[in-house]
Amino acid sequence: MSIQHFRVALIPFFAAFCLPVFAHPETLVKVKDAEDQLGARVGYIELDLNSGKILESFRPEERFPMMSTFKVLLCGAVLSRVDAGQEQLGRRIHYSQNDLVEYSPVTEKHLTDGMTVRELCSAAITMSDNTAANLLLTTIGGPKELTAFLHNMGDHVTRLDRWEPELNEAIPNDERDTTMPAAMATTLRKLLTGELLTLASRQQLIDWMEADKVAGPLLRSALPAGWFIADKSGAGERGSRGIIAALGPDGKPSRIVVIYTTGSQATMDERNRQIAEIGASLIKHW
């Protein structure tokens, strides 16, 4: 067993022997301040990774656009098919120029040779490549099948209805392509620590998230040296922004954090800054 596999296998073990965790309302004060600064709703939840206990939450059962955070769930569904012998990570998928959609920095470079399922998941999570996500959605049967996968996990809230990039439209009061912070946090925890996926697939999923290259201005910008984070960000229309993450000190994750916002007129930089400040408060009061 590799060191990384050992780390993920012992996530519940280490967490069980940690000192009790206590909620700190100071972080919620910052979440509410972010709402004021952005002029928009902000949803927040913080779960203990081992027990699933909610440590703090704000608007945990209000719907927010998922945006690209759905790509972690998508690759979880792909990995479940791999575990069941219905898919192979090494299978190569070929596609054409007509398949390319807006923001496809990886797939646009491989029109000639195609990409493997493993490479597509890596591109979808680490670079948020939209064509990679659409190609992977095709392998599982489309958005409705991802929703069905989530329902089978016990998540009857999260739903995907459309493809990239239309799913980022974020129309107010439109339930399409949305989740709730509580539902997303619980589902992410199941994917990373539950028995739904094999140990190898859980490790692969967290490795992809740990290698995320496009979430630097968010929670990662607030992390002290030595902290662990595996995350996936999302951005959408109407001032929408979000991030889902597993993080913790001492090089291992111990909490799940989900943050979503929508309806702001603020710039992307300002949305990023507010999420980073929430992260800084979380870490300060850990």
Rank of each mutant, 00 (worst) to 15 (best):
D48C: 10
A222V: 13
A132I: 00
M67E: 15
G85N: 07
V106K: 13
L160N: 04
A211T: 14
Q86F: 15
V78R: 00
G194W: 14
I278H: 01
R273S: 10
I140N: 05
T179L: 00
T178Q: 04
G154D: 11
I45G: 09
M66R: 00
S281I: 15
R162P: 01
G248I: 00
I45W: 02
E270V: 03
G279P: 00
R176A: 05
R220P: 03
V101F: 06
L49V: 15
R118W: 12
V214I: 12
C121I: 11
I93F: 15
L73W: 03
R162W: 02
L150V: 14
R41D: 14
S254W: 07
E175C: 05
A225C: 07
M66H: 08
L38I: 06
R189W: 14
G242T: 02
E108P: 14
Y260W: 02
R159G: 11
D36M: 15
S221C: 03
T179C: 03
R202M: 07
V31S: 04
V157W: 12
V258P: 00
T27M: 05
E87A: 15
F58E: 05
D113T: 05
Q86H: 13
F228I: 15
E102G: 07
T193V: 09
S254D: 11
D174V: 07
T131H: 12
S128M: 00
T116N: 11
L55V: 15
D231R: 10
S254P: 07
N50F: 09
Q274G: 07
A266Q: 04
L28H: 13
M184W: 00
E119T: 12
E62Y: 10
R273D: 09
Y260D: 01
T261I: 10
F70W: 06
E62G: 09
K71H: 01
R81G: 05
R162M: 06
L192Q: 07
S281Y: 15
T126R: 08
W286P: 03
T186Q: 13
E164S: 00
D231E: 10
L146I: 13
I206N: 05
L197P: 05
K284W: 12
D269S: 14
E35T: 06
G142Q: 12
T138G: 13
V257A: 10
F70N: 12
A215E: 15
P25Y: 13
E166Y: 13
M115Y: 08
L89I: 10
P253S: 05
A225R: 09
S122P: 03
E61I: 06
N272T: 12
G226E: 05
L74V: 12
G242K: 00
S240A: 09
Q97I: 04
S57T: 12
L218Y: 03
L100P: 03
E169P: 08
Q274R: 09
R63I: 15
M180Y: 14
Y44I: 09
D83Y: 03
F228W: 10
M115K: 05
I244C: 10
V117D: 01
I93R: 07
L146N: 02
S240L: 02
E277N: 13
L150K: 00
M184S: 03
W163Q: 11
V42W: 07
R63D: 03
L135D: 01
A183L: 08
K109Y: 12
L196V: 10
L188H: 09
L137M: 03
D207M: 07
A230W: 03
A280M: 11
S51V: 08
T178F: 02
G248F: 02
A230R: 02
T198Y: 10
E87W: 04
L247Q: 02
K232N: 00
V78N: 02
I275Y: 10
A148H: 06
W286S: 02
L160Q: 06
P60W: 09
R162C: 13
P181K: 01
G242F: 01
S254F: 15
G142W: 01
E175N: 06
F228N: 15
I45F: 15
L38Q: 07
A185G: 08
F149A: 11
A246P: 01
L223W: 06
R41Y: 13
R255C: 09
G248E: 01
I244A: 10
N130I: 01
E119S: 14
E35R: 13
D113Q: 04
G76R: 01
W163I: 09
D161V: 07
G52T: 07
M209F: 03
V214T: 11
M66F: 12
P65C: 04
Y260G: 00
M180N: 15
N134W: 02
W286N: 03
D212T: 10
G90A: 09
I229P: 00
E145L: 08
Q265V: 06
A170V: 12
P65E: 02
S128R: 00
A77W: 05
K109G: 13
K252Y: 05
P217V: 08
P249V: 07
W208Q: 04
A84W: 15
T179I: 02
A266F: 03
R59L: 03
I244E: 01
D231A: 09
A124S: 07
Q204C: 12
W208A: 13
A123Q: 04
F64Y: 13
L73S: 13
I283D: 02
Q37C: 09
T147A: 05
S96R: 07
T187V: 11
K284D: 11
P181G: 09
K32Q: 14
K32G: 12
A215C: 13
Q37M: 06
L73F: 14
F149Y: 12
K53C: 12
L167P: 03
A34Q: 09
V101N: 12
M180L: 12
Y44G: 02
T158S: 10
T139W: 12
P143K: 04
V257W: 02
G251Q: 07
I171N: 15
D231M: 10
L73Y: 09
E210A: 12
K144E: 08
A280G: 10
A215L: 04
E166K: 12
I243L: 13
A245N: 02
T193Y: 11
M209Y: 01
T131L: 09
G114Y: 09
A211Y: 15
T139K: 05
K144S: 09
S264A: 09
V214Q: 12
I45P: 00
E35Y: 02
R176M: 05
M184K: 01
N168G: 06
L38H: 07
S80H: 15
K109C: 13
E210G: 11
A215V: 15
S128W: 01
G154C: 04
V257D: 00
D231H: 08
D250A: 04
L192I: 15
Q88E: 14
A276H: 13
D99E: 05
L120W: 01
R241T: 10
E210Y: 14
R202I: 15
E195V: 03
L205S: 02
L192E: 02
D207E: 07
S128D: 01
K53D: 12
I206S: 05
